[in-house]
Amino acid sequence: MTLKERLGRLGRTEAANGYLLVSPTALYALLLLAVPLATILAFSFWTQNYLDIDTTLTLKNYQEAFGEPLYRQLMLRSLMISGAVTLATVLTAFPIAYFVSFHVPQSRKSLWIFLITIPFWTSYLIRVFLWKVILGYNGVLNATLQGAGLIDEPLTFILYNANAVVITLAHAFAPFAILPIFVALEKIDRSLLEASQDLGENRLTTFLRVTLPLAMPGVVAAVLIVFIPTIGDYVTPRLVGGPNGLMIANMIQTQFLKLNNAPLGAALAVIAMLLVGAISLIFVGLNRRFLRGPK
């Protein structure tokens, strides 16, 4: 056996062990994720007539998805709502992450993080429903305010519209935003802050010139982690969104289950994925440039 052959053999055994061990999981993901996603992509170029699928390739679904004002409006609204949720969540989350990282003693940080994550793990459906109960026409907020004599008529601008969706989603995704920012802040070497103050910056300028830039990767991660799932959220718009708070996921569901137009639903799903992907890439790219920039 030549040296090269032996090398090849050794290389294979290490790699082969890895492949062997990862293969059940990878195979599962291949069969139940890659194949379905590919199928959806294929469907989006087909058409459906009642129950028959016509597999002639066509762009008709995409033309309809982009041409029909209803779909355009839904996509735009999904983006707007997701954007608003992301902005609200990340902005309110940052001070919390900062507080836990910089003002909570080391021994109690785990407890704080645990407290912040617990609501996330409790039933999503019930949490969303609770907001409906709180914000509704006869809900806790209105009934209580009326009972206290503060308002005469129930407030109506808080339920069954986009505002309610934003509030509910911001609440649901709070831990998702806090954790990555917290992790980024924890990684900051505290002596950097002392160095900055030693070099003449005050607390505020130190925060702006040192802490914030170093926390940026966490902020970007938080943005992505909130933005991606919210744009495809189904439950919240259905429960608290009302007719003007519906989002793209609701339309995808309608196409698949109610209108029996799987190809159009598939096209909408593909477009949603592409939108999410594109915006994610923009953010990742911005983050990279941002990190490289100051050097």
Binding site: L32, F43, D233, A249
Partner: peptide, 13 residues
Amino acid sequence: VLPEIIVAVSLLV
């Protein structure tokens, strides 16, 4: 990072 609705519909199909 995939919206769950997409996982759901693609599996369903």
